[in-house]
Design a protein around this nucleic acid. Structure first.
Length: 560
RNA sequence: UGACCCAUAGUAUAAUUGGCAGUACAGCGGAUUUUGGUUCCGUUAGUCUAGGUUCGAGUCCUAGUGGGUCAGCCA
């Protein structure tokens, strides 16, 4: 079973192995990750990154990072920085330099001239509206442009003048001459170049025409020697065009290897949105604090939330690769972080919502240092000293005045163990003027000390705690799902913003923590025992630490 | 009144390419536990429908149904 499990390949791996077999090779593929720098990367991109890089690793190849920067009006260098950081943080190193589609603008222009000379491309003076109208609709053929049969000489002249900036934006385009009656809309004389008098962050003001995606992408793949160009399903209808362009160019400029486009289903996660447009909207309208808000499904958001690169990689491997539309349950993502952090995150104690406990038989002024292991899952992580004292904080929800039988925690007359310390018994409940429990008076059993317990007392519950005199204080931010609906953008009559969860962020400004947390630094991850995994946020300033809750612990006692 | 793609437990994904439908997450039950965590064991639950080919169909064929994509000078 293990052996068959290892042999199981996804459909892309099957295609690659078949391709390699046909060519009598055992490896040497080249994949690419081609983001457009017009937004931050999200968990869906992570799936694509992991796919492309792990395929290359598996089949002895490499992966290029190429920015698809063919639209200067929406793209920005700010995004190219952020994207590189995210890919690196995920743990991948791309092949050679960062590449840009704009590196190939000259080559692309040359290829376009080649198509014109073959009579396979022409300059169209039609307006945007005319072109749209004459394109027809999916169920009915379009009609040919009156400019479709210009002479090669005229096309060459016009195209050259388009490039030099002689014409207004929108006045002309270069189109491939294919088939206005094709059932595939993308083959109805697709536009190759549009006029854009825009400054490009890399090519400056050199160009007045910019290539469309279809014209730029496949050729960039071919020029880089990409063997397998993996993209998402919506590009499936583009594949005939991808191949057509390559077919034409290969008549005067053969490519070895010739790239092959393969499509797979993008990742969708429930209780969130994954489109860059909607993510941008959340940022711009202030529904979140930025692209890296810990509630965002962006890679930078997840990083800030406390997700580790390994947990995201494991998640991406687990979701699988297929062509079926899918919606992954967030619980799989959460499982992936817990799995990783359980093995790596040191345990500490923090009380989110405090209730004071006074141990009446513990000598006033006395303290002691208790040795507590840092991570029971990792013996190599050692232990630390945690101070104990007569006055402590415990979690308010760990006490009930009238507890049900199955409640294993504290109640009047009940006993519990304090983690790594003593067994205590609740003797008296003190309330404030409003009847709210304000303090517990307890007694402890001196002989029940952890590690040398001779008391013989058995308790069912163990509580975390923080000693009052030595307690540190931090801010904690608790996060819940950003949307209350599993598929917020899948409702025909309702806007996804209607499903925003008003309680997705809860700030606890004063949380008591054990003193060992003083040395925590931005990015450090911990398990707050019994409460979940937490990560130090960059908003922390010096001693003033801010923690983000990455995810709660699995709760076998599902209360609330 | 088109073309193309897709359809396996609640979710996602396998099935040596035509040979006992498996895995993970989620759920449920139990054991262990100084985290109601972890770990371990058990368990519920599936091939869209109808025909056909075949000794044998999740897999091949036909039709249907359902879902998705395509009408940007976005990618």
């Amino acid at each position: 079973m293990n052996t068959t499990e290892e042999k199981s390949l996804n459909f892309i791996e099957q295609i690659i192995e078949e391709d390699l077999r046909k060519e009598g090779k055992t490896g040497g593929i080249l994949t690419r990750f081609p983001p457009e720098p017009n937004g931050f990367l999200h968990i869906g991109h992570a799936k694509s990154i992991v796919l492309n890089f792990s395929l290359a690793q598996k089949y002895g190849g490499a992966t290029n990072l190429r920015f698809d920067d063919t639209n200067p009006v929406t793209e920005d260098t700010r995004y190219v920085e952020a994207i590189q950081e995210d890919v690196r943080w995920l743990g991948y190193e791309w092949n050679g330099p960062v590449r840009y589609a704009s590196d190939y603008f000259d080559k692309l222009y040359e290829f376009a001239v080649g198509l014109i000379k073959m009579g396979k491309a022409y300059v169209d003076d039609s307006s945007l509206e005319e072109i749209r109208r004459m394109r027809g609709v999916p169920t009915a053929p379009g009609e040919e442009s009156p400019y479709r049969n210009r002479s090669v000489e005229e096309n060459l002249d016009l195209f050259e003048r388009m490039r030099s900036g002689e014409f207004e934006e929108g006045s002309r385009v270069l189109r491939a001459k294919i088939d206005m009656a094709s059932p595939n809309m993308h083959l109805r004389d697709p536009i190759m170049y549009r006029i854009l008098h825009k400054h490009h962050y890399r090519t400056g003001d050199k160009w007045h025409i910019y290539p469309m995606y279809d014209w730029a992408h496949g050729q960039s793949d071919a020029l880089e020697g990409i063997t397998h160009s993996i993209c998402t399903l919506e590009f499936e209808v583009h594949r005939p065009l991808y191949d057509w362009y390559l077919d034409q160019i290969e008549t005067f400029h053969p490519f070895h290897p010739r790239p092959k486009q393969i499509e797979f289903a993008r990742l969708n996660l429930n209780y969130t949105v994954m489109s860059k447009r909607k993510l941008l909207q959340l940022v711009n309208e202030g529904h979140v604090k930025g692209w890296d808000d810990p509630r965002m499904p962006t890679i930078s958001g997840l990083r800030r939330r406390g997700y580790s690169p390994a947990s995201i990689r494991n998640f991406a491997e687990r979701v699988g690769i297929a062509k079926r539309e899918n919606v992954i349950d967030v619980s799989l993502l959460e499982f992936s972080v817990r799995e990783d952090l359980n093995k790596t995150a040191p345990r500490v104690m923090a009380v989110l919502n405090p209730l004071k406990v006074v141990i009446t038989n513990y000598p006033e002024g006395q303290t002691e240092e208790l040795e507590i292991e840092n991570n029971p899952e990792d013996p190599a992580s050692g232990s630390r000293k945690v101070p104990f004292a007569r006055e402590l904080y415990i979690e308010r929800e760990d006490f009930m005045e009238n507890p049900p039988k199955k409640f294993f925690r504290l109640g009047p007359g009940r006993k519990v163990r304090l983690k790594g310390a003593y067994i205590i018994q609740c003797d008296e409940v003190i309330k404030d003027g409003e009847g709210k429990v304000s303090e517990l008076r307890c007694t402890y059993y001196p002989e029940s000390r952890s590690g040398s317990d001779t008391s013989g007392i058995k308790v069912k519950g163990t509580l975390h705690w923080v000693a009052v005199p030595t307690a540190g204080m931090v801010e904690v931010r608790l996060y819940d799902r950003l949307f209350m609906d599993p598929e917020p953008d899948n409702h025909k009559d309702r806007d996804f913003l209607e499903f925003l969860n008003p309680d997705s962020l809860q700030v606890l400004p004063e949380v008591y923590v054990e003193p060992s947390l003083k040395s925590a630094r931005v990015g450090d991850r911990f398990q707050f025992m019994r409460k979940g995994y937490f990560c130090v946020d960059p908003d922390s300033k010096g001693e003033q630490l801010v923690f983000n809750r990455t995810v709660t612990l699995r709760d076998g006692w599902k209360k609330r």
